[in-house]
Simulated assay, not measured.
Amino acid sequence: MRVCNEGFDQDFIDGKSDMYAIAFTQNVLSGRWKYFILWYLKDETRRYTDIKKFLGDLSQGSLTKQLKELENDGVIQRDVYPEVPPRVEYSLTDKGIKLLPILEKMADYGREYGETT
């Protein structure tokens, strides 16, 4: 079984469709900050600078990489406005909105079973 950015082995896709579906979703969400980016975009369109401030110490390169991957997977939309300086906004696509119940279930699980100190 090969699960990576280059794709999945056809035998894996054909022979283990349930596992492929989970692996595909995991591949879309893989990345330390993607969950937080999607959660932050769930209620409204956000500017790049707002996302950067929300995530704190994340480097510009890391944020740009995560955003590009989410955009390439069709989960977020990037809109650039021809202003000086250019304004860049991000929002969830329909495909991204469909991921929100997964994130909500993760939050539920964390609230129920996560450690509190």
Rank of each mutant, 00 (worst) to 15 (best):
Y109A: 02
T116K: 15
P101E: 05
S17R: 06
M106H: 13
I97M: 03
K98D: 00
K68R: 02
M19W: 13
I97Y: 04
I13Q: 02
Y20L: 00
N5A: 12
Y40K: 07
L100Q: 10
A107C: 13
I37G: 01
Y90D: 04
G61T: 15
V88P: 00
R47T: 12
T45H: 06
N5D: 14
S30V: 02
Y113D: 07
V88G: 00
T25W: 02
L58Q: 14
T93Q: 09
G114V: 03
R78W: 01
V28T: 09
D94F: 14
Y90H: 03
Y48I: 12
D18L: 14
G110T: 13
E115M: 06
F8L: 00
G110E: 10
K53I: 00
S17L: 00
I37Y: 06
I13C: 01
D50P: 09
K52T: 11
R87S: 03
D50C: 08
D9C: 06
R46D: 13
V88T: 03
Q66R: 05
I13N: 04
D43P: 13
Y35L: 08
L29I: 09
L67V: 00
D73N: 07
G56A: 07
E44Q: 10
G110I: 08
T93K: 00
D11N: 11
L58H: 13
L58I: 15
T64Y: 11
Y48G: 09
W39P: 05
M106P: 10
D73R: 02
L58F: 15
K68D: 10
P82T: 03
F36D: 10
F36H: 05
E71Q: 05
D108E: 15
L63Q: 04
E71A: 10
Y48R: 14
Y90E: 04
N5P: 08
D79A: 06
E112T: 06
V75W: 05
G56R: 03
F24C: 06
A21T: 06
L67C: 01
R78F: 02
R47K: 14
S59D: 13
Q10I: 12
I37M: 00
Q60I: 07
A107W: 10
G74C: 08
D108G: 11
G56P: 05
T45N: 05
S30K: 11
